[in-house]
Design a protein around this nucleic acid. Structure first.
Length: 653
RNA sequence: GCUGCUGUAGCUCAGUGGUAGAGCACUCCCUUGGUAAGGGAGAGGCCGUGAGUUCGAUUCUCCCCAGCAGCACCA
């Protein structure tokens, strides 16, 4: 006899070995029909599992949010079955659920094409309609390896060997087809439903390791209902429309070209945004007690050796020989024997050099040293992506040199600064990850223990929620990653705070403590926006190109209807400019419809229209981006209104 | 860097084994027109680079380069 506890507080007794299926069928037929799985003590489980005494049982209905991962996982199995039914020679590997769907990696000589996806989808639909029941079996390891070997499934054998010996080896069958899987699954493949779609094909490394073979990955997504699938596909389409590379070209903000891959050519309009953001953050940093510096681009490789970058980061550095290139065309340009310099990939070692000038007292700390440092990193070609991933970048970087007892306070202050800045840019949803020691790192484990503990304690002291991001820290210390959620629900890592005991040690930075001893300062590496390039990319996508007026490259266009209004229009532009606004006239020989359309497409926030009537009366007809109608105001009212609106948020009183 | 796909006018894209087309943008002309495209004319391309197959290649094949997607890496 076993006792089962239900969410409503009820308890019921069943005979030993009773399954979830039996329980739900005993409660109600209609509930049983909708139930696809269960939670036993909070853990998702197969409905067909026998229950044990004293468990807390909840049923998972197909349209519960927690059923989504089951739908997707089952869809991945159906995908694998479909592929093997069409191409029996294909080996299956793994097929997990991911944030917005699932994928399955296959080993196959010929990669899949987009056309194959439609064919596979059809086959999946057939399989789902066949409605095979999922059944679970526990297999003996050797037996399992024999079976998979006989099927030519070599990757599965590797997977079996990776499963700890104390764990059962579970096989899930769906009709004739079966797969090694930890489960759980729903009742039948029919529970997958019809709201699924295969979205793309790609190569992916076996076990995510670049040293391994490349597999063919098929991505897909699945939802409980067609409507949710449609909404998701709509979001993807929306993301494509907002692509900052496309908008950057359309709005004439920046461009890239072959000769400078990964580096941005900022056009005048784009650079307005860049400069506005830099000026804004400079004011914010100044208010928060930072002092700005500027350090060299090129530094001797000896310094990078000392800092640890030469050993741990060299593959991402641009190394430059310190010699005069040969001007003889018959000779090699470089001798290959010169001393080596490197373009800085980070500002930290240079900041330590400034710190080390003169003797620092404990009274001087914390020192908050900021730099809009232009850094170069030799990113892999395949990593480059518009403004989001570039080779030349400018961070809103700063290093805080402080005592260990100041770490918590500095962390709090930094978080406060982040909140203000993100709010000013309209981001309200911020999540935090604590990234711990990576495999490739400098410093001993005791130092890492201390660093991770200190950073975590400091973060806890701010009272913020966070999650752990295992193994993703910087090579010199653990870091906090601040992720912003954008207007269409995507998450972007922007801010970072990294705690570093090692660099001051390696570069021999010290201060004189209260007792007269020499002490190492702690270094906090931190950025709020991350890199300006990437942050601007995020802003463009967040706003779909419609920048807030304080950032808009052109804030107002003064467009005329008839040439008799030209003079008044130019006078208005002068007035707006004198008030500090970015205003442009449009006196072209075009109809007002044409002008309005063009400036709307260009996302100009305000169009001030001047016809004969307005020119005579000293008024303007004001049309806002996205609004249908227009409002008539006097010239002075317009100037006053726009000055108020266009003031950067930190200067707004 | 790895796998796959792509590379034709400033942009978005057609197209063909016999050296090319559209729309928008651009220039000029007509039009002075009240809030998302007025009309007409014109100019603009070594069809990514190099090699091969061929009488002939932008088209087929290969190398390289770049871009895109994903992976790996990462701000």
């Amino acid at each position: 006899m076993i006792t089962v506890n239900f969410p409503d507080g009820a308890t019921r007794d069943y005979s030993d070995g009773t399954t979830g299926t039996a329980v739900v069928e005993g409660i109600s037929k209609s509930l049983a029909k909708k139930t696809v799985a269960m939670r036993v003590n909070g853990e998702l489980a197969d409905l067909s599992d026998p229950l044990t005494d004293g468990v807390a049982l909840e049923f998972v209905l197909r349209d519960d949010p927690s059923a989504l991962e089951l739908i997707r996982h089952d869809a991945a199995h159906v995908l694998a079955e479909a592929v093997q039914e069409i191409w029996p020679q294909t080996q299956v590997t793994i097929g997990p659920v991911i944030e917005n769907g699932f994928y399955y990696d296959f080993a196959r000589d010929e990669p899949f094409s987009e056309d194959d996806l439609r064919q596979i989808e059809k086959k999946m639909t057939q399989i789902i309609q066949r409605g095979a029941r999922f059944t679970k079996e526990i297999w003996d390891r050797d037996e399992a390896k024999r079976v998979f070997k006989a099927k030519g499934e070599h990757y599965k054998i590797e997977l079996i060997d990776a499963i700890p010996l104390d764990q059962d080896l579970k096989i899930y069958k769906q009709g004739q087809w079966f797969d090694l899987c930890r489960g759980p699954h729903m009742r039948t493949v029919r529970d997958v439903g019809n709201a699924f779609k295969l979205t793309k094909v790609a190569g992916a490394y076996w076990r995510g390791d670049a040293k391994n073979a490349v597999l063919s990955r098929i991505y897909g997504t699945a939802f409980a209902s067609k409507a949710e699938l449609a909404a998701h596909l709509h979001m993807l389409a929306e993301a494509e429309k907002r692509d900052h590379r496309k908008i950057g070209r359309e709005l004439d903000l920046f461009h890239f070209q072959e000769e400078a891959q990964g580096s941005v050519f900022w056009h005048p309009k784009g650079f307005v945004i860049y400069n506005q953001i830099e000026a804004y953050i400079r004011r914010r940093l100044n208010d928060a007690g930072y002092r700005e510096v500027k350090t060299p681009q090129l530094l001797d490789h000896k310094l990078w050796q000392q800092s640890g970058h030469w050993e741990k980061f060299r593959a991402s550095m641009f190394v430059v020989p310190d010699e005069v290139p040969s001007t003889d065309d018959d000779q090699p340009v470089l001798s290959g024997t010169a001393n080596l310099l490197a373009l800085k990939p980070m500002n930290c070692p240079a900041h330590v050099q400034i710190f080390k000038q003169g003797i620092k007292s404990y009274r001087d700390l914390p020192i908050r040293m900021a730099e809009f440092g232009c850094c170069h990193r030799n990113e892999a070609h395949g990593a480059l992506h518009g403004l989001m991933r570039v080779r030349q970048m400018t961070q809103d970087d700063a290093h805080i040199f402080c005592r260990t007892d100041q770490v918590t306070d500095e962390t709090k202050k930094f978080c406060d600064l982040l909140d203000r800045v993100y709010a000013d840019f309209g981001f309200s949803d911020v999540s935090i990850l604590l990234a711990t020691r990576p495999e490739l790192r400098t410093g001993d484990d005791e130092t890492w223990d201390l660093a991770e503990k200190s950073l975590e304690e400091a973060l806890r002291a701010t009272g913020r929620d966070f999650a752990i991001n295992e193994g993703e820290g910087a090579f010199y210390g653990p870091k906090l990653e601040f992720n912003l959620k954008d207007a269409i629900g995507r998450s972007w890592q922007c801010g970072t705070l990294q705690l570093d005991f090692g660099t001051p040690e390696r570069l021999d930075a010290s201060y004189i403590a209260e007792d007269g001893s020499r002490q190492r300062p702690v270094m906090l590496h931190r950025a709020v926006l991350g890199t300006l390039e990437r942050f601007i990319g995020i802003l463009i996508e967040n706003h779909a190109g419609r920048m807030p007026i304080w950032l808009a490259p052109v804030q107002v266009v003064v467009a005329t209807i008839v040439s008799e209004a030209d003079e008044a229009a130019l006078a208005l532009v002068d007035k707006l400019r004198a008030a500090g606004l970015r205003a442009e006239p449009d006196l072209r020989n075009e109809k007002i419809n044409y002008k309005v359309r063009e400036h709307s497409v260009q996302k100009v926030p305000v169009i001030a229209v001047l016809g004969k009537r307005e020119a005579e009366e000293g008024t303007v007809s004001v049309r806002r981006l996205g609004a249908e109608g227009s409002v008539s105001v006097t010239v002075d009212e317009l100037v006053k209104e726009l000055v108020g609106e266009a003031t950067p948020p930190d200067l707004d009183i």
